[in-house]
Design a protein around this nucleic acid. Structure first.
Lengths: 211, 211
DNA sequence: AGCGTTAACTTAACATCGTTAACTTAGTGA
DNA sequence: TCACTAAGTTAACGATGTTAAGTTAACGCT
């Protein structure tokens, strides 16, 4: 049986080689900017060899996105230790924006394009709902804690709605930065400044006013 | 001279036919989902005929985007009459979101993709800086008025930064809706509700607290 | 030891894409 | 009448994602 194991390991290794090459290319060139032939050439395989390991270009890319989702979740680990839920929400927001700044192409694929994921793959089921892995669930969890702590305004009790609103706010900052930062007709303020003000303002607007 | 005029008009007419066919296709299929050949077939021309009127696919699409920018600006005309700058900002935000809901593919191209526009075409120069046409400038104008009226918190005096923050907030709502609304792992609240809360919260967080 | 099977991988090819070059062709102005 | 202009066509190029048919080497079984 050790033989079959080795073969399996070898296959996984070339699979990993494909993923590495694809990651490097996608990161700098974006989805449309890289072809299967380029990926193949980079690891000295024929273009069609990729199809042994991945059904199509989409699946190859999705695999990378999956890995990066985990990386995104990892960034939240730091925030997880904060006991103040509001502080935690803030930290999650900044981490999210920083993630988008560091991996714009991955961010683009994850959050700025419609992908016919149709959800509910077995892998997704593992991820979704687990606060340590699922960014949205983690945010929602913190929001719920904040609600329970009574820090949000009285009429705001829907954790789902609050989470979606907070998410949209930080997503707006980073996605607009990715898509339009090179447009010279806007005198862009530094990203940090915009992130700071957005999080500050949206939270100030959602929380009870300090008396 | 009437002859040359007629020829010119005829050319403009087929140009318009191309634009109409392209608009219809792009609107439903998105940028990558439509080919020059499809556009051509729809108006019974050969694919290359399009290149008589447009340099390439990009220019064809950009032309549509230009027209839709004007349409977007037109939506703001209603808001222009409001004397209260804060109310005007709110109205602009809702109009912006409504525009994205109505023309998601155009919105995607306008605000969710990097386009190497590099700005400063002659047409762009007409648009930029004119509050009636340029959405961002219009927003900034209203923000400046609001600053002058002393409704924002004392430390917030940068109209550019405030505009960018407000823009990002509404952009976050509509762009996330476009990209991720079909993802079933989020129990999405109605778009109207999210838009309402976002604008309400961000403004509440930026304005002076009512005493 | 020999042989059929499996499966990773290659070669060749297909349909489609955006785009260019070379042509047709109809109408214009002199 | 004739050269010219310019809208439009046909044919083709290189590149794309992907499939079908082969190759080949290692494995498991008798």
């Amino acid at each position: 049986m050790t033989v079959k194991e080795r073969r399996e390991r070898e296959k996984l290794e070339t699979r990993e080689k494909i993923l590495d090459a694809a990651r490097e290319l996608f990161l700098t060139e974006g989805y449309d900017g890289v072809s299967m032939r380029q990926v193949a050439e980079r690891i000295d395989y024929s273009p069609t060899a990729i199809y042994v390991h991945f059904a199509d270009k989409d699946e190859l890319f999705r695999e990378l996105v999956h890995a990066d989702f985990a990386r995104l979740a990892g960034v939240f680990q730091d925030a997880a230790n904060l006991s103040d839920p509001v502080e935690r929400i803030k930290r999650v927001g900044f981490a999210y924006i920083e993630f988008g700044r560091r991996y714009p192409n991955h961010y683009k694929l994850m959050f700025m394009t419609e992908c016919p994921l149709t959800g509910l793959d077995e892998v997704d089921c593992e991820l979704k709902g687990n606060p340590e892995l699922d960014a949205y669930a983690f945010l929602k969890h913190s929001v719920q804690q904040a609600i329970d702590a009574g820090v949000f305004r009285e009429e705001l009790r829907d954790a789902e709605l609050l989470s979606q609103t907070l998410w949209a706010a930080v997503h707006g900052v980073i996605s607009l930065n990715i898509a339009k930062h090179s447009d010279a007709w806007v005198a862009w303020r530094p990203l940090e400044q915009r992130a700071q003000l957005t999080l500050d303002a949206i939270l100030r607007g959602l929380l009870k006013e300090k008396s």
